[in-house]
Amino acid sequence: MGAGIVGLATAYELQRQGLRVTVVDQAQPGSGASGGNGAQLSYSYVQPLADPGIWAQLPKLLLSPDSPLKLRPQLDPQQWRWALQFLRACNTETSRRSTAQLLALAARSREGFERMLVAERLECDFSRTGKLVLYATPSALEAARRQLELQRAWGSEQQTVSPQRCVEIEPALADYRPHIAGAVHTPSECAADCLKVCQGLHRLLAARGVRFVLGTRITALVQSAGRLAAVQTGAGAIEADRFVLALGSASPALARSVGLSLPVYPLKGYSITLDVDRQADSAPQVSVTDAARKVVFARLGDQLRVAGMAELVGHGLDIPPERIDTLRQATRAVFPRSDTQQVAHPWAGLRPATPTGVPIVGVQAGGPRNLLVNTGHGALGFTLAFGTAAEVAQQAAR
């Protein structure tokens, strides 16, 4: 259930094991949160959003109209429950534990994704040019250095670099150098077009006999003797031996119908995609994250993906013009020689997040014995998809 990057990666791993697979979704592959995401594959820089530093930011989260992180209370008990669990997770011990789990999962995901790319030769603008995370103040850089040391203990290869070194690594940052206190450089990080990966997986899986039931809404889960017997859809009932719930932020509502409470709520994000001159230094080749603005920049061939913000504002997919203006302004600030007046392909997506940032994977206590969950990846859906897919496939094979 689900044809985003998480669902398709899972289908790929299950089909590799020789299982007969059916994929059901009311939309086309990759058209949800996968379609216009930040494109970065952040295998070594996975700091959870739930961090002790959030407490000092609460007034801005609640009140500021232009904060990159935004909380707007809704008449939704699920939102309130999630927000309280998130605040409880904003402590040092939980952040350390989540970081360790995410790094291990990311390493497994890198292995699976890159093995798939080599085997299948998907065209997806994949690059391995590394990533720079920019910090505007010495205090922010020092906090990043502490996180770097924590991640180094679990095998991440990163280093802090000076503003001058930033420009040497990425010449397109030359104009922005006075605003950089320093950065974390991770040479091994990658980027790719997630939508192209989804479309490529769809084509090759369909060619290998995976059945796709698309444009079809799931209306009910049919239970029998503690197990799922079928998924009821607009196209009829689909029976199976095992079921995987990978519907992103839509997963909790369906899970509740079979007695499962999943702590997943959407974090709304936005992106624009700009055409760039491949030969010019006006746009970066290296992936860049502006930590203060919570905006990421990723090169995808002749385009630049600019994405950011995390809003706890409900399930709407509207695109306020001021949020797109914020992304344009961030691009002009960091890369002032880039052309931000062109058609920018505005996009919004609902990233399914858990309070700790760690995805929910596998059979869940209290739920049907043959229902495996694979959701809650937050802003790391693309990064972690093949890691959680491998875990689900491993459990399904037992």
Rank of each mutant, 00 (worst) to 15 (best):
S42I: 00
W82F: 15
G4N: 14
T94F: 04
G53K: 08
A9N: 12
G112S: 03
A89W: 11
F113K: 00
R108F: 00
A100D: 15
F113A: 05
G112A: 08
S109R: 02
L84I: 08
R96N: 09
R108H: 02
Q101R: 11
G112N: 05
P65K: 15
Q26F: 09
S34T: 15
R20L: 07
C90G: 06
D66W: 14
L87C: 11
Q28H: 05
V46L: 11
S67H: 15
L87H: 12
G2P: 09
W55E: 03
P68F: 07
A104L: 11
P52F: 07
L8N: 06
P59M: 02
G35I: 01
A11I: 07
A83H: 02
P59D: 09
G30T: 04
Y45W: 15
D25L: 13
L105W: 00
L19R: 13
K60G: 09
S67Q: 10
S42H: 01
E93W: 01
L58M: 13
Q101T: 00
F86E: 13
S64H: 12
A39F: 15
F113D: 00
P73M: 00
Y45V: 09
Y43Q: 03
E114D: 08
E93N: 03
F113L: 14
L63C: 12
Q74S: 05
M116V: 02
L69K: 10
L49F: 15
P52D: 07
R96L: 12
Q101L: 07
P68S: 11
V6W: 01
W55V: 13
G18Q: 07
L62R: 11
N37V: 14
C90T: 04
S98P: 10
A83S: 13
E111C: 01
Q79F: 14
M116L: 14
K70N: 06
E13T: 02
P48S: 09
L103K: 06
T10W: 05
Q101E: 07
N37C: 13
A107I: 00
G32H: 13
Q78P: 05
Q57F: 12
A56R: 15
Q79A: 11
E114M: 04
I54N: 02
A3Q: 04
G36D: 01
M116P: 06
P73Y: 03
P59K: 00
